[in-house]
Design a binder for these strands. Sequence first.
DNA 1: ACCAGGTACTACGCCATACGTAATAGTGGC
DNA 2: GCCACTATTACGTATGGCGTAGTACCTGGT
Lengths: 106, 106
Amino acid sequence: MARRRDNAEWSDPGLLVLGSLAGGPRHGYSMTADIAANAGIELGPGTLYGALARLEGQGLIVALPADGARRPYAITAAGTQTLRARLAALDKFSKVAGARLRAATA
Amino acid sequence: MARRRDNAEWSDPGLLVLGSLAGGPRHGYSMTADIAANAGIELGPGTLYGALARLEGQGLIVALPADGARRPYAITAAGTQTLRARLAALDKFSKVAGARLRAATA
DNA sequence: ACCAGGTACTACGCCATACGTAATAGTGGC
DNA sequence: GCCACTATTACGTATGGCGTAGTACCTGGT
């Protein structure tokens, strides 16, 4: 797996893509820009489209009719649910870890 | 990479371990329990000790003198910093994605 | 002393998948 | 009709997540 990029604190293409699509349909290339802006992580094409294919296979996103060379994708209901669940799990862990960090510092 | 476990919303052993050690030194086996309790994710031995070895190699945690069969680990200053940074990045992304989710629902 | 059971860790291997690089295709301007 | 730019596909590598199994330690019972 998951060779983590050296420049980033973390990375999870699938999650990043879902987060990006939560803002509305988008085609692949523009997700790269969106993700870079919002998370500070630059995904290469291989990473992005690989993740896209997997997410589509899982039914979390759907391909919309191509607009010229662009292939827009939209998040599905299942995708929204998954995103919500993962975000919740993340926040839960983040809170516990954050509290421990603060306790240790204090 | 990262074959994600089917039962979990997300997984990142390294981060989970750092979060667990932020609460104080612990040996491997007890991290498994702690992580299961706090994040709902059960790491197998292979996953856990692999992550521990990597983290130690990166200087984010240190092995303490063995206590019988147990091998306690403690988080280092670098580890704390890394944890803090990753948590911050996570929260940042989480906020953006959460806001989008809410906007879409509303 | 010996054995059984639970705790803690080591060893080994598979293969999914994150990531990079490079090639390809569609679009608009001049 | 060519050229630059945008967007995607193709391909290869190897990191590291995960499972399975096996080993050692420790405790209590008899």
